Simulated assay, not measured.
Amino acid sequence: MLNTKLKPVTLFSSNDEGAPVLSASAGSLKALLKACLVTGYGNKTALGWEMPFEEANAAVFRSQSPESTRFCFKINQPQQRVCTLQAFRAMSSLTAGTGEFGYTGNYQKFGLVESGRAKQDSWWLIGHDGAFLLMIGDNRGSEVAMLFFGDVPTVVPNDTGNCMFLHSSSSSYDYFNTSSLYFVTGGGSNRAYMGKRWDNTELGAECELHSLLAGSGLGATYPDKITGGLSASEVYIFERNNGLNLRGLLSGVYRTAHNLQDLPNGTSVPLDGTSDVFLKFRLGYSGSDNYFLINATQWEVNNG
């Protein structure tokens, strides 16, 4: 069973005073992550991560929380609009790491600025000192590219590998591939990765994401014709290791059953029974119904 507690998160966005601009230039996403995770900007305090290794267009980020796995996230962006993302259990330099987990080959590439554009007008980063979620809005206002890295709640006692790494983009960005294109819950086409397998084997674990609201019946009118509100459900992580096994929870992320296309990305959407702030995002690709809410107030984390 999941044994969790709630942890406050901080919302950073392109609308903040002094927020970094996500441009097509080499190194721009590294600079944005550095500002949100390490240095802060304007009146925003950073999440308290460290950056043990850095060059002009590349860096390694790592949580400093004693409760964290302290696994490493590397970004390298020597060219415009596209970067390479990698995850390691440990790194001794910017180019030397052990225990790599996650995407391989071209699937490591992440499109962050749309083709032909000099910058992206909107982005949001939400997180705490152990995990963060970045959303980059396309300039049509229809969908977002996203990146998640950090520790998640898990059903495994004394889990030492519960670091999640996933990303997705869209066909409007300068680079995308069909493996990391979709952030889909309910199907085997999506890919997400954990730092170790559930039995703590020193191998990365390929995972699927599932929600009670994935599948048929999606796309209901919002507000709901019967309740006048909205339905949302948690997103759970299933590890592909001798079958599909429940591993944990993608904290802060909720799948909705309703079509929220008329709400701009980043819009606050009320949920009954809570005063938490939930922001709407459309993750995936044009024509999909992958509408999600991201909790911008607090996330569940392992309790001990």
Rank of each mutant, 00 (worst) to 15 (best):
D16N: 12
E17I: 13
A19D: 09
P20H: 01
P20Y: 01
V21D: 12
S23A: 05
S23P: 10
S23W: 03
S23I: 04
A24T: 11
A24M: 15
S25P: 06
G27Y: 01
K30G: 05
K30P: 09
A31C: 07
A31Q: 06
L32R: 00
L32N: 00
L33C: 06
K34H: 08
K34I: 10
A35D: 00
A35K: 00
A35S: 06
C36K: 02
C36G: 04
L37N: 05
T39K: 04
T39L: 04
G40L: 08
Y41D: 06
Y41C: 05
Y41L: 13
G42Q: 10
G42F: 08
N43T: 14
K44I: 09
K44W: 04
K44N: 10
T45F: 14
A46K: 09
L47K: 13
L47C: 13
W49P: 10
E50F: 08
E50D: 14
M51I: 12
M51R: 12
M51Y: 07
P52V: 10
F53L: 11
F53K: 14
F53Y: 15
E55R: 15
E55G: 09
E55I: 11
A56W: 05
A56S: 13
N57Q: 09
A58I: 01
A58L: 06
V60D: 11
V60K: 12
R62S: 06
S63E: 02
S63C: 06
S63P: 03
Q64N: 12
P66E: 14
P66Q: 07
E67N: 14
S68Y: 01
T69S: 12
R70S: 15
R70V: 11
R70Q: 14
F71S: 09
C72D: 09
F73S: 12
F73Q: 08
F73A: 11
K74R: 10
I75H: 05
I75R: 08
N76G: 12
N76Q: 15
Q77Y: 00
P78F: 06
R81M: 15
R81C: 14
V82C: 02
V82F: 04
C83P: 00
C83S: 10
T84I: 15
T84E: 15
L85C: 14
Q86F: 05
Q86N: 10
Q86T: 13
F88S: 12
A90L: 15
A90D: 15
S92C: 13
S93T: 01
S93P: 03
T95W: 11
T95F: 11
A96T: 15
G97A: 01
T98Y: 04
T98A: 11
T98I: 14
G99I: 15
G99A: 10
Y103Q: 05
Q108K: 09
Q108T: 08
Q108D: 02
K109V: 02
G111A: 04
G111K: 01
L112F: 08
V113A: 03
V113N: 04
V113M: 00
E114F: 03
E114A: 06
S115D: 10
S115P: 05
G116A: 01
A118V: 07
K119H: 05
K119D: 02
K119Y: 07
K119T: 07
Q120P: 01
D121C: 06
W123P: 00
L125E: 00
L125S: 01
G127W: 00
H128N: 14
D129T: 10
G130E: 09
A131N: 03
A131K: 02
A131L: 04
F132I: 06
F132H: 01
M135L: 06
